[in-house]
Amino acid sequence: MRMAVLIASVLVAGCSSTTGGQPERIEPIPPSPSASSPSATTTAPSSPTPTAAPAPGAAVGDVLTWIEAGAPADTAQFHEATREGEITQLGDDVAFTTPSGKTTCMTDARRAEGALACLVGLLDPPPRPADAYGEWKGGWVDYDGTSVAVGSVHGDPGRFTAGQGPELPYGQLLSFGDYRCRSDAAGLFCGNYANRSAVKFSDAGIEPFGCLQPVSAPPQIGEMFRC
């Protein structure tokens, strides 16, 4: 008899957690959204592209990144030059001029393997060397990627006999060969990707970046930078 009373007590305790005579259903706890949701995954923000033109001494990587951020120009529109109303087709060469008119540039695949030459209206061009003979052009700048020569002797306009190329508007990027050039109110910035060097052309002076360092100028050259 005492055993029957004990069993009945156990049955009553087991049924005390039911509702309306039915066992109470225990719902599973859903996993935390932070553990399964893709939106919970975070990535490190990328460095923003500088909006201001590179300052003197800027890292060449930053200069090239800034140049690349320009709005792409149609290179096909820069294969001609104009002089006194006459247009000359340049074939694969390119020519362009900054909106200020202070810098005009052109390549010459026949004479300089596509290297870039620019005529810059320098406010303080390098003086004519004592050993120079012929017509001195202090604002003639040759840039081939590994060197920059500022000021040289030219008996004639050379490649610029054809005149000047079309205007490259501020903020636009012109790509040709290993070069990328972006026009800006602060000056013209050109980079050579094969050698990871860059140059700023402006009337205030020529500013090299990257591996380009000042060296002793060879005969008949005003100023020289070389990698």
Rank of each mutant, 00 (worst) to 15 (best):
A194K: 13
E113Y: 14
A40R: 04
A198E: 03
M3K: 15
C181E: 03
A44Q: 13
S46Y: 13
Y143F: 14
A8D: 08
T19R: 12
T98N: 08
H154R: 07
I87G: 07
R159Q: 06
V120L: 06
G205F: 10
G21V: 00
F201D: 02
N195S: 12
V199K: 01
S37E: 01
G205Y: 07
P72C: 08
D124G: 08
A52T: 14
Q89W: 14
C190M: 09
T104V: 06
N195P: 02
S183Q: 14
C118V: 02
A117E: 01
F189Q: 05
M106C: 00
M106N: 03
Y179S: 05
L173Q: 15
P28V: 04
E113Q: 12
S175W: 09
A73R: 08
E113T: 10
D156E: 09
P30K: 03
T51E: 15
A194Q: 09
F96I: 03
G145K: 05
C105H: 08
P28T: 00
L90T: 06
A59P: 03
D62Q: 13
S17C: 08
G205H: 09
G139N: 11
G191S: 02
T65S: 14
F189A: 10
G57E: 13
E68Q: 14
A71K: 15
A117R: 11
P38L: 01
P127Q: 05
L188G: 12
A95S: 11
S39K: 10
E86K: 15
G191T: 05
Y133P: 01
W66Y: 02
G145M: 13
T18L: 04
D144E: 09
D62M: 13
A186H: 11
P208A: 09
G138S: 01
Y133C: 11
A117S: 05
P33D: 10
P23M: 04
